[in-house]
């Protein structure tokens, strides 16, 4: 069976990984690259805990083979902050307590990041649609949606 050398670009850095072809992007991120911010949830593409950005679009790393994304730009939650400075979404989630157990939070924030990058002033419906694939088993959706609004408002305020 295929054992291959993969070159993965994660958070702007090139990583070389020797792995077998059946391994998912999620497994390689967590076990080979020690990036455990991406969470391992349902494992079948239902829950969104494993969300990462591939070429700026949110996708499910648990049902994506690492081999499929060689040469793509992968962004995980570890790559969102600018050094010690958190992303506006991370600040807003933190301030509003938009996390209970926290397991869905990285996926929620990455899906939200992609939304705000393409739609800086989303309606609540837009946010609901963008986060439809990210499940929160604590059902803390109200605070999560408020946090996305807050981050959007602050980003727009600074732009003016």
């Amino acid at each position: 069976m295929t054992e291959s050398i993969l070159r993965l670009t994660v958070n702007g850095a090139l990583h070389t990984v020797v792995t077998s072809s059946h391994r998912t992007l999620l497994e390689v991120l967590r076990k080979d690259l020690d990036m455990t911010g991406t969470k391992h949830g349902c494992d079948l593409g239902e829950c969104g805990a494993c969300t990462v950005l591939v070429d700026s679009k949110p996708m499910l790393s648990c049902i994506t083979l690492a081999s499929q994304v060689e040469g793509r730009e992968i962004t995980t939650i570890e790559g969102l902050s600018d050094g010690p400075f958190p992303d506006e979404l991370q600040t807003a989630f933190s301030e509003l307590g938009a996390a209970q157990c926290g397991y869905c939070t990285p996926g929620m924030i990455l899906s939200s990041r992609s939304l705000l990058d393409t739609n800086p002033d989303p309606t609540t419906d837009d946010i609901n649609e963008a986060l439809a694939g990210n499940l929160c088993r604590c059902t803390g959706y109200v605070a999560i949606i408020s946090a996305v609004h807050l981050a959007a408002t602050r980003t727009l305020g600074r732009a003016e």
Binding site: M1, T2, S4, S20, S21, H22, R23, T24, E27, D43, L65, S67, Q68
Partner: peptide, 11 residues
């Protein structure tokens, strides 16, 4: 959970 191993080709 992994899928069973397989040969992967990306032509």
């Amino acid at each position: 959970m992994y899928p069973p191993n397989f040969d992967y080709v990306a032509p």
